[in-house]
Each structure stands twice: as structure tokens, then as C-alpha cells.
Amino acid sequence: MTEPIDKDPVHMPPVGPAVHESTSAGGLPPQVIKAVPVRHYGRWISAVLVLGVLALIGVAFSNADINWSVIPDYLFFDTIVDGAANTLLITVLSMVIGVALGVVLAVMRLSKNPVTSAVARMYIYLFRGTPVLVQLFLWYNIALIFPILNLGFYKNEMTDVMTPFLAALLGLGLNEAAYMAEICRAGIQSVDGGQIEASHALGLTGAQTMRRIVLPQAMRVIVPPTGNEFVNMLKTSSLAYGIQYQELLKAATDISSRTLAVMEMLFVASVWYLLLTSVFSIGQYYLERRFARGATRNLPPTLLQKVGASLTRLSHREGVA
């Protein structure tokens, strides 16, 4: 028979503070460790240097020969507003062409058909390898080699057809399609191949698999660089100034040629570009957040949530102080 276990607390090992007292020298409790923060002197020095440079830039612009009162006077001038609207219009339409054609080119390049794959590769090579401004001039001056546009059902002089707007639309849209093709190709290839095989096993055709399985998942990879391309297109559209399209930069320079306020009107155009890019950058953030659903357990906070969290931390610090 087994002997009963002695449950007398006198014979039980010490627990709690008694353990620490028995292991510490002289039976005294260990001292509390005081954490001393590391001094980052480099941060303070770099901050002082950056503030000094910003102060010098501010002093330089304050002493510059710039009529600052002209900027708010022309900020919402009719010509400037119309130019900004034309910039937004050509940007949106060019991106629509670029995204739609880019998806087609990406599918063509990934195709097992050597002809369609070679055509897509050659398109991407040509339009990515030449400057956008050169392409704009080629479209704008195409009447020099094709004076008559004859489509069978439609015939007209090329000078009447190829307006600055159409030349800008073709130049920007077709160039953007080459970059969007590579972005879409990367997004399509990011989808696991096992899902494509499973969809084929379920009887889905290649087009159905691409539309219902591949593209919805590829959007998580495609959306962020597409938003960057849209913001970049807003600024690239200023190159249409070279073919006399009445966009924002062209409107600003036309006014400056009459008023001789060259720098002031360039500042006006810059303010509008910053405003447009800021608005669409916010839209890009929420679009990325939407397509992140299902991919991440915790969605990134919205901009309002970030502001609220910052204010909460600031109030907490002031309360502690």
C-alpha cells in the first residue's frame, strides 16, 4: 500500500515572496530595475538641421520678387478652372483606355498562343521604350503621313479628325496601357495556380475563370499601383501642353503671357495639381482598404480613425504630464 501524502503546510516548499527571499542575498528582495532611455542625439541634430534648411527656404521666398496677392486672385479664375476640368477629363479617359487595354494585353502576353503573346510583348516594348511627349507629337502630326482618314464607312481629312484632345487621349491612353499591362500581368500571376486548375475541373471556361476567379483576387495587387499610375497621369497630362491641348498648364501659361506673372501662375497650377492628387490619393486609400477585405484579419484604420487615435494619444500625454 502507498503511504498517505503528508499535507502538513509546515513541510510544503515556500511559495510566493518566500522563494525570492530565500534566493536573494541576505534574505532581502531584489531591487527594482530602472530602465534608462537611450539618448538619440542624432535625431535632435538632424531635426535642427532640417528646421534650419526650411527656415532658410522660407526667408528666401519671403524676400523673392513674387506678387503673392496674384495667386488667390487667379486660383479660381474661369480659365484656370476650365483647364483643371480638362486635365481631370483627359486623365480619367486616358486611364480608362489604359486599364481596359492593359488587361487585354496582359491576358494576351500570358496566352499560350505565340502570335498574341508576341504582339503584346512588342506593343509593351514600343510604348514603354519611347517618351510620352514623342508619342503625343507623333499622333498630333500624323496628318503629315496620312492626310486622309478613310475607314470605308467614314472619310475625312486627318487634320479635322486629329484634334489636340484626340491626340492627347491616344498618346496618354495607349502609353498607359503598356504600363498597366505589366501591372495586370503581375496581379494575375499572383493568384495561386491551383485555383485555376480547380475552376477548370469544375467546368469553367478560361474566360469564366479569368472573370470570376482570377481577376477579383488579382485586384488586391493591381489596385495600389493603378492608383499610383492615376496620380502620375494627372501630372503627365501636363505634357499635352506641347500639342496645344487646353489643360491646366496651358491655361496658366496663357494667362502669364498676358499678365507677365509667370511664376505666380505656375504656383497657381501647382496648387491645383496638389489639390487633385490629394483628393485622389484619399480615394485610392479607401479603395485599397475595400479590396483588402478577406485578405487581412484587421482592416487598416480609416483616415478619421487615425486622426481620432492621434488626438486620443495627445490628450493622454497631456493628462499624464
Rank of each mutant, 00 (worst) to 15 (best):
Q305C: 11
L133P: 04
L234P: 03
V223Y: 12
L239T: 13
S238M: 04
Y123L: 03
W139N: 01
G242R: 05
V115N: 06
P30I: 09
R220I: 14
V59S: 12
A218M: 01
Q208M: 10
K250L: 09
V48I: 15
A269S: 09
E318I: 15
R293P: 04
S46Q: 12
G173M: 04
L299Y: 01
M108L: 12
F146E: 07
H316W: 15
L166K: 11
R220P: 08
S281Q: 15
R293H: 06
M108F: 13
A18K: 05
L56P: 04
G98Y: 00
Q246V: 15
I66C: 05
I124Q: 11
A240E: 06
Q284L: 13
E318A: 14
L248T: 04
M108K: 06
V15H: 10
A100I: 12
P17G: 11
A261F: 00
E288F: 06
F76C: 00
M233D: 08
F280H: 06
L215M: 13
E157S: 10
I148D: 14
I142G: 07
Y125C: 02
G203M: 07
G58M: 07
W139C: 00
Y74I: 05
G173C: 10
S315G: 11
N175I: 04
A106M: 04
L304C: 11
K235G: 11
A25W: 15
L311V: 14
F230S: 00
F127G: 07
P9L: 05
R258G: 08
Y179Q: 12
I33W: 12
N175C: 03
N175D: 05
V81L: 09
R289K: 02
S22A: 13
K235F: 09
G58L: 13
L93A: 14
Y154L: 14
R289A: 02
S278M: 12
N67V: 01
M233P: 13
K235Q: 10
R185C: 03
T91A: 02
P29I: 01
I196Q: 14
T209R: 08
G83Q: 02
F153P: 13
T296I: 14
M122V: 10
A120D: 00
T130C: 03
A177W: 00
A207W: 00
I145Y: 00
A100H: 02
R289V: 02
Y273M: 01
E229M: 11
T253D: 13
G52S: 04
S199K: 09
Y286R: 07
A201R: 01
L89M: 09
V103C: 07
V279P: 02
Q284S: 06
H316N: 14
A177Y: 00
M210C: 07
P14I: 10
R290P: 08
P29M: 12
S238E: 11
V231F: 06
I243E: 02
L314T: 14
A321I: 13
S22P: 06
I188Y: 08
W272I: 00
G27E: 02
E318C: 14
V107L: 11
A168G: 15
F61T: 08
D8W: 11
H316D: 15
P72Q: 06
V92Y: 06
V107E: 08
N228M: 03
L170P: 01
T296Y: 10
A269P: 10
